[in-house]
Protein backbone atom coordinates (compact mmCIF):
# COMPACT_ATOMS: atom_id res chain seq x y z
CA UNK A 1 0.00 0.00 0.00
CA UNK A 2 1.11 3.49 -0.68
CA UNK A 3 1.93 5.90 2.10
CA UNK A 4 -1.29 7.88 1.65
CA UNK A 5 -3.50 4.85 1.61
CA UNK A 6 -1.74 3.53 4.72
CA UNK A 7 -2.43 6.85 6.39
CA UNK A 8 -6.08 6.79 5.30
CA UNK A 9 -6.46 3.18 6.38
CA UNK A 10 -4.82 3.93 9.69
CA UNK A 11 -7.20 6.82 10.24
CA UNK A 12 -10.21 4.69 9.35
CA UNK A 13 -8.95 1.98 11.64
CA UNK A 14 -8.47 4.41 14.46
CA UNK A 15 -11.89 5.99 14.14
CA UNK A 16 -13.50 2.64 13.42
CA UNK A 17 -12.04 0.98 16.50
CA UNK A 18 -13.00 3.87 18.76
CA UNK A 19 -16.43 4.10 17.18
CA UNK A 20 -17.11 0.40 17.51
CA UNK A 21 -15.89 0.46 21.11
CA UNK A 22 -18.29 3.29 21.85
CA UNK A 23 -21.10 1.52 20.05
CA UNK A 24 -20.33 -1.62 21.99
CA UNK A 25 -21.30 0.07 25.24
CA UNK A 26 -24.83 0.44 23.93
CA UNK A 27 -24.79 -2.94 22.21
CA UNK A 28 -23.63 -4.68 25.36
CA UNK A 29 -26.25 -3.03 27.53
CA UNK A 30 -28.98 -3.97 25.09
CA UNK A 31 -27.78 -7.55 24.94
CA UNK A 32 -27.50 -7.83 28.69
CA UNK A 33 -31.03 -6.44 28.84
CA UNK A 34 -32.33 -9.08 26.48
CA UNK A 35 -30.66 -11.90 28.37
CA UNK A 36 -31.89 -10.56 31.69
CA UNK A 37 -35.49 -10.12 30.48
CA UNK A 38 -35.49 -6.35 30.33
CA UNK A 39 -34.90 -3.69 27.70
CA UNK A 40 -31.68 -1.88 28.42
CA UNK A 41 -31.28 1.62 27.00
CA UNK A 42 -34.29 2.16 24.75
CA UNK A 43 -35.21 5.81 25.13
CA UNK A 44 -32.78 7.76 22.93
CA UNK A 45 -33.03 7.30 19.19
CA UNK A 46 -33.95 4.04 17.46
CA UNK A 47 -33.62 1.21 19.97
CA UNK A 48 -31.86 3.62 22.24
CA UNK A 49 -28.79 3.72 20.03
CA UNK A 50 -28.23 7.41 20.68
CA UNK A 51 -27.62 6.59 24.31
CA UNK A 52 -23.95 6.40 23.33
CA UNK A 53 -24.09 9.97 22.19
CA UNK A 54 -25.80 11.11 25.35
CA UNK A 55 -23.30 9.30 27.52
CA UNK A 56 -20.48 10.80 25.54
CA UNK A 57 -21.91 14.29 25.92
CA UNK A 58 -22.35 13.77 29.60
CA UNK A 59 -18.81 12.49 30.06
CA UNK A 60 -17.40 15.27 27.95
CA UNK A 61 -19.15 18.00 29.89
CA UNK A 62 -18.23 16.66 33.29
CA UNK A 63 -15.90 18.58 35.56
CA UNK A 64 -12.33 17.60 34.77
CA UNK A 65 -11.38 17.04 38.36
CA UNK A 66 -8.16 15.80 39.88
CA UNK A 67 -8.34 14.96 43.55
CA UNK A 68 -6.12 17.28 45.60
CA UNK A 69 -4.40 14.31 47.24
CA UNK A 70 -3.61 12.54 43.97
CA UNK A 71 -0.32 12.51 42.05
CA UNK A 72 -1.45 14.90 39.35
CA UNK A 73 0.79 13.99 36.39
CA UNK A 74 0.50 10.24 36.74
CA UNK A 75 -3.19 10.54 37.47
CA UNK A 76 -3.83 12.26 34.14
CA UNK A 77 -1.40 10.06 32.17
CA UNK A 78 -2.75 6.71 33.39
CA UNK A 79 -6.03 6.54 31.41
CA UNK A 80 -4.35 7.62 28.17
CA UNK A 81 -1.85 4.76 28.42
CA UNK A 82 -4.45 2.04 28.05
CA UNK A 83 -6.12 3.69 25.04
CA UNK A 84 -2.80 4.23 23.28
CA UNK A 85 -1.59 0.69 23.95
CA UNK A 86 -4.81 -0.89 22.79
CA UNK A 87 -5.04 1.23 19.64
CA UNK A 88 -1.44 0.37 18.75
CA UNK A 89 -2.33 -3.27 19.10
CA UNK A 90 -4.78 -2.90 16.20
CA UNK A 91 -1.88 -2.12 13.85
CA UNK A 92 -1.02 -5.80 13.41
CA UNK A 93 -4.58 -7.14 13.03
CA UNK A 94 -5.00 -8.88 9.59
CA UNK A 95 -8.49 -7.84 8.49
CA UNK A 96 -8.14 -9.41 5.05
CA UNK A 97 -5.27 -10.70 2.89
CA UNK A 98 -4.20 -7.17 2.08
CA UNK A 99 -5.84 -5.11 4.76
CA UNK A 100 -3.50 -4.52 7.61
CA UNK A 101 -1.55 -1.58 8.84
CA UNK A 102 1.57 -3.57 9.46
CA UNK A 103 2.50 -7.10 8.66
CA UNK A 104 5.46 -7.48 10.90
CA UNK A 105 7.29 -10.76 11.17
CA UNK A 106 6.92 -10.36 14.92
CA UNK A 107 3.30 -9.22 14.74
CA UNK A 108 2.14 -11.57 17.48
CA UNK A 109 4.87 -10.42 19.86
CA UNK A 110 3.94 -6.82 19.15
CA UNK A 111 0.35 -7.59 20.13
CA UNK A 112 1.48 -9.27 23.32
CA UNK A 113 3.71 -6.32 24.10
CA UNK A 114 0.91 -3.83 23.64
CA UNK A 115 -1.53 -5.69 25.88
CA UNK A 116 1.21 -5.86 28.49
CA UNK A 117 1.60 -2.12 28.39
CA UNK A 118 -2.05 -1.73 29.39
CA UNK A 119 -1.25 -2.98 32.88
CA UNK A 120 0.64 0.23 33.54
CA UNK A 121 -2.47 2.22 33.00
CA UNK A 122 -4.44 0.39 35.65
CA UNK A 123 -1.56 0.14 38.05
CA UNK A 124 -0.56 3.79 37.78
CA UNK A 125 -4.18 4.91 37.95
CA UNK A 126 -4.60 2.99 41.16
CA UNK A 127 -1.37 4.25 42.65
CA UNK A 128 -1.79 7.87 41.67
CA UNK A 129 -5.31 8.09 43.09
CA UNK A 130 -3.90 7.84 46.60
CA UNK A 131 -7.01 6.07 47.76
CA UNK A 132 -7.13 2.72 49.50
CA UNK A 133 -9.70 1.18 47.17
CA UNK A 134 -7.85 2.39 44.12
CA UNK A 135 -4.58 1.08 45.50
CA UNK A 136 -6.10 -2.34 46.19
CA UNK A 137 -7.58 -2.37 42.68
CA UNK A 138 -4.25 -1.44 41.19
CA UNK A 139 -2.45 -4.12 43.18
CA UNK A 140 -4.91 -6.76 42.12
CA UNK A 141 -4.72 -5.79 38.49
CA UNK A 142 -0.94 -5.87 38.50
CA UNK A 143 -0.88 -9.38 39.96
CA UNK A 144 -3.73 -10.59 37.77
CA UNK A 145 -2.38 -9.22 34.51
CA UNK A 146 1.19 -10.30 35.08
CA UNK A 147 0.06 -13.81 35.99
CA UNK A 148 -2.27 -14.24 33.05
CA UNK A 149 0.18 -12.71 30.59
CA UNK A 150 2.39 -15.76 31.13
CA UNK A 151 -0.22 -18.25 29.91
CA UNK A 152 -1.51 -15.91 27.28
CA UNK A 153 1.88 -15.80 25.66
CA UNK A 154 2.55 -19.50 26.16
CA UNK A 155 -0.88 -20.53 24.90
CA UNK A 156 -0.09 -18.91 21.56
CA UNK A 157 3.20 -20.68 21.11
CA UNK A 158 1.39 -23.78 19.89
CA UNK A 159 -0.15 -21.72 17.12
CA UNK A 160 3.22 -20.24 16.29
CA UNK A 161 4.82 -23.67 16.15
CA UNK A 162 2.17 -24.98 13.81
CA UNK A 163 2.28 -21.89 11.60
CA UNK A 164 6.02 -21.52 11.81
CA UNK A 165 5.79 -17.78 11.93
CA UNK A 166 5.04 -14.85 14.22
CA UNK A 167 3.48 -12.93 11.37
CA UNK A 168 -0.28 -12.84 11.78
CA UNK A 169 -0.95 -12.98 8.04
CA UNK A 170 1.19 -16.14 7.87
CA UNK A 171 -0.69 -17.65 10.80
CA UNK A 172 -4.04 -16.98 9.10
CA UNK A 173 -2.81 -18.53 5.89
CA UNK A 174 -1.49 -21.53 7.81
CA UNK A 175 -5.08 -22.32 8.81
CA UNK A 176 -6.29 -22.88 5.29
CA UNK A 177 -6.67 -26.62 5.83
CA UNK A 178 -8.08 -26.58 9.29
CA UNK A 179 -8.62 -23.78 11.80
CA UNK A 180 -6.30 -23.95 14.76
CA UNK A 181 -9.29 -24.00 17.08
CA UNK A 182 -9.49 -27.70 16.43
CA UNK A 183 -5.99 -28.97 17.13
CA UNK A 184 -5.13 -26.07 19.40
CA UNK A 185 -8.31 -26.38 21.44
CA UNK A 186 -6.43 -26.22 24.74
CA UNK A 187 -4.56 -23.17 23.52
CA UNK A 188 -7.83 -21.55 22.55
CA UNK A 189 -9.33 -22.29 25.95
CA UNK A 190 -6.39 -20.79 27.82
CA UNK A 191 -6.21 -17.81 25.50
CA UNK A 192 -9.92 -17.15 25.95
CA UNK A 193 -9.67 -17.09 29.73
CA UNK A 194 -6.42 -15.15 29.76
CA UNK A 195 -7.92 -12.71 27.27
CA UNK A 196 -10.82 -11.92 29.56
CA UNK A 197 -8.45 -11.56 32.47
CA UNK A 198 -6.15 -9.30 30.43
CA UNK A 199 -8.98 -6.98 29.49
CA UNK A 200 -10.28 -7.38 33.08
CA UNK A 201 -13.83 -7.80 31.97
CA UNK A 202 -16.46 -9.62 33.93
CA UNK A 203 -16.23 -12.21 35.32
CA UNK A 204 -12.60 -11.31 35.91
CA UNK A 205 -13.04 -7.63 36.77
CA UNK A 206 -11.41 -7.99 40.15
CA UNK A 207 -9.42 -4.77 39.93
CA UNK A 208 -12.77 -2.98 39.75
CA UNK A 209 -14.90 -5.29 41.91
CA UNK A 210 -17.53 -2.72 42.78
CA UNK A 211 -18.91 -4.80 45.64
CA UNK A 212 -15.65 -4.81 47.50
CA UNK A 213 -13.61 -1.91 46.23
CA UNK A 214 -16.23 0.72 45.31
CA UNK A 215 -14.83 1.03 41.79
CA UNK A 216 -11.32 -0.29 42.25
CA UNK A 217 -8.54 1.46 40.44
CA UNK A 218 -10.80 4.11 38.90
CA UNK A 219 -12.61 5.08 42.10
CA UNK A 220 -11.31 8.63 41.90
CA UNK A 221 -11.81 9.01 38.15
CA UNK A 222 -14.64 10.86 36.47
CA UNK A 223 -15.50 12.58 33.21
CA UNK A 224 -13.28 11.97 30.18
CA UNK A 225 -10.51 10.34 32.17
CA UNK A 226 -12.97 7.75 33.34
CA UNK A 227 -14.31 7.45 29.80
CA UNK A 228 -10.83 6.64 28.55
CA UNK A 229 -10.53 3.77 30.97
CA UNK A 230 -13.85 2.44 29.71
CA UNK A 231 -12.80 3.01 26.10
CA UNK A 232 -9.56 1.16 26.74
CA UNK A 233 -11.48 -1.75 28.21
CA UNK A 234 -13.80 -2.04 25.19
CA UNK A 235 -10.90 -1.61 22.77
CA UNK A 236 -9.19 -4.43 24.59
CA UNK A 237 -12.28 -6.56 24.19
CA UNK A 238 -12.39 -5.94 20.45
CA UNK A 239 -8.68 -6.46 20.08
CA UNK A 240 -8.75 -9.79 21.91
CA UNK A 241 -11.70 -10.89 19.75
CA UNK A 242 -9.84 -9.91 16.57
CA UNK A 243 -6.76 -11.79 17.69
CA UNK A 244 -8.80 -14.83 18.58
CA UNK A 245 -10.36 -14.77 15.14
CA UNK A 246 -6.97 -14.45 13.48
CA UNK A 247 -5.20 -17.03 15.60
CA UNK A 248 -7.77 -19.74 16.07
CA UNK A 249 -10.73 -19.22 13.74
CA UNK A 250 -9.00 -18.79 10.45
CA UNK A 251 -9.05 -15.00 10.37
CA UNK A 252 -10.44 -13.78 7.03
CA UNK A 253 -10.66 -17.30 5.60
CA UNK A 254 -14.06 -18.49 4.54
CA UNK A 255 -16.22 -19.52 1.60
CA UNK A 256 -16.14 -17.14 -1.30
CA UNK A 257 -19.76 -15.90 -1.21
CA UNK A 258 -18.56 -13.28 1.29
CA UNK A 259 -15.45 -11.11 1.01
CA UNK A 260 -12.62 -11.94 3.43
CA UNK A 261 -13.18 -8.73 5.44
CA UNK A 262 -16.79 -9.70 6.06
CA UNK A 263 -15.76 -13.13 7.29
CA UNK A 264 -13.28 -11.57 9.62
CA UNK A 265 -15.77 -9.08 11.05
CA UNK A 266 -18.46 -11.74 11.37
CA UNK A 267 -16.23 -14.08 13.33
CA UNK A 268 -15.01 -11.24 15.51
CA UNK A 269 -18.57 -10.15 16.15
CA UNK A 270 -19.62 -13.64 17.26
CA UNK A 271 -16.69 -13.81 19.64
CA UNK A 272 -17.64 -10.42 21.09
CA UNK A 273 -21.17 -11.71 21.56
CA UNK A 274 -19.74 -14.66 23.40
CA UNK A 275 -17.77 -12.36 25.70
CA UNK A 276 -20.92 -10.45 26.49
CA UNK A 277 -22.74 -13.68 27.17
CA UNK A 278 -20.02 -14.64 29.61
CA UNK A 279 -20.54 -11.37 31.38
CA UNK A 280 -24.27 -11.94 31.57
CA UNK A 281 -23.97 -15.46 32.93
CA UNK A 282 -20.87 -16.11 34.98
CA UNK A 283 -20.32 -14.68 38.46
CA UNK A 284 -17.06 -13.19 39.56
CA UNK A 285 -14.65 -15.57 41.34
CA UNK A 286 -12.83 -14.63 44.49
CA UNK A 287 -9.39 -13.16 44.06
CA UNK A 288 -7.58 -16.19 45.48
CA UNK A 289 -9.65 -18.48 43.23
CA UNK A 290 -8.61 -16.45 40.22
CA UNK A 291 -4.94 -16.69 41.11
CA UNK A 292 -5.01 -20.39 41.89
CA UNK A 293 -6.94 -21.08 38.69
CA UNK A 294 -4.19 -19.29 36.80
CA UNK A 295 -1.17 -20.90 38.39
CA UNK A 296 -2.54 -24.32 39.22
CA UNK A 297 -4.71 -25.06 36.21
CA UNK A 298 -3.92 -22.74 33.33
CA UNK A 299 -0.17 -22.93 33.55
CA UNK A 300 0.02 -26.77 33.57
CA UNK A 301 -2.58 -26.92 30.80
CA UNK A 302 -0.55 -24.55 28.66
CA UNK A 303 2.65 -26.45 29.26
CA UNK A 304 0.98 -29.74 28.40
CA UNK A 305 -0.44 -28.19 25.24
CA UNK A 306 2.94 -26.74 24.34
CA UNK A 307 4.78 -30.00 24.88
CA UNK A 308 2.21 -32.01 22.97
CA UNK A 309 2.12 -29.58 20.07
CA UNK A 310 5.91 -29.48 19.96
CA UNK A 311 6.11 -33.26 19.98
CA UNK A 312 3.50 -33.61 17.25
CA UNK A 313 5.16 -30.89 15.18
CA UNK A 314 8.54 -32.63 15.46
CA UNK A 315 6.98 -35.99 14.62
CA UNK A 316 5.19 -34.52 11.59
CA UNK A 317 8.41 -32.98 10.34
CA UNK A 318 10.04 -36.14 11.37
Amino acid sequence: MSETSTLVFGLILLLGAVGVAAGLTWFERRLLGIWQDRYGPNRLGPLGALQVLADMLKLLTKDDWVPPFADRVVFVFAPTAIVIAMLLGFAVVPFSPDMHLLDMNIGLLFFLGMTSLAVYSVLLGGLASNNKYALLGGLRSAAQMISYEVFMGLSLMGVVMLAGSFSLQDIVRAQEGMWFCVHQFLGLYVFLIAGIAESHRLPFDLPEAEHELTAGFHTEYGGMKFAMFMLGEYLGLILISCMMTALFFGGWLGPDFLPPLAWFLLKTGIIILFFILLRAAIPRPRYDQLMSLGWKVMLPLTLVNLAATGAVALWMEG
Partner: peptide, 21 residues
Protein backbone atom coordinates in the same frame (compact mmCIF):
# COMPACT_ATOMS: atom_id res chain seq x y z
CA UNK B 1 -22.07 -26.28 34.85
CA UNK B 2 -20.66 -23.07 33.45
CA UNK B 3 -21.59 -24.12 29.96
CA UNK B 4 -25.12 -24.97 31.10
CA UNK B 5 -25.34 -21.53 32.65
CA UNK B 6 -24.31 -19.98 29.37
CA UNK B 7 -26.98 -21.99 27.64
CA UNK B 8 -29.67 -21.00 30.08
CA UNK B 9 -28.83 -17.33 29.71
CA UNK B 10 -28.75 -17.68 25.96
CA UNK B 11 -32.23 -19.17 25.98
CA UNK B 12 -33.49 -15.94 27.52
CA UNK B 13 -32.92 -14.27 24.16
CA UNK B 14 -36.37 -15.50 23.32
CA UNK B 15 -38.27 -14.61 26.48
CA UNK B 16 -40.25 -11.41 26.93
CA UNK B 17 -38.93 -8.50 28.94
CA UNK B 18 -40.57 -7.96 32.30
CA UNK B 19 -39.96 -4.21 32.23
CA UNK B 20 -42.90 -1.93 32.92
CA UNK B 21 -42.33 1.18 30.88
Amino acid sequence: SQLRTLGTVLRHTFTRAETVE
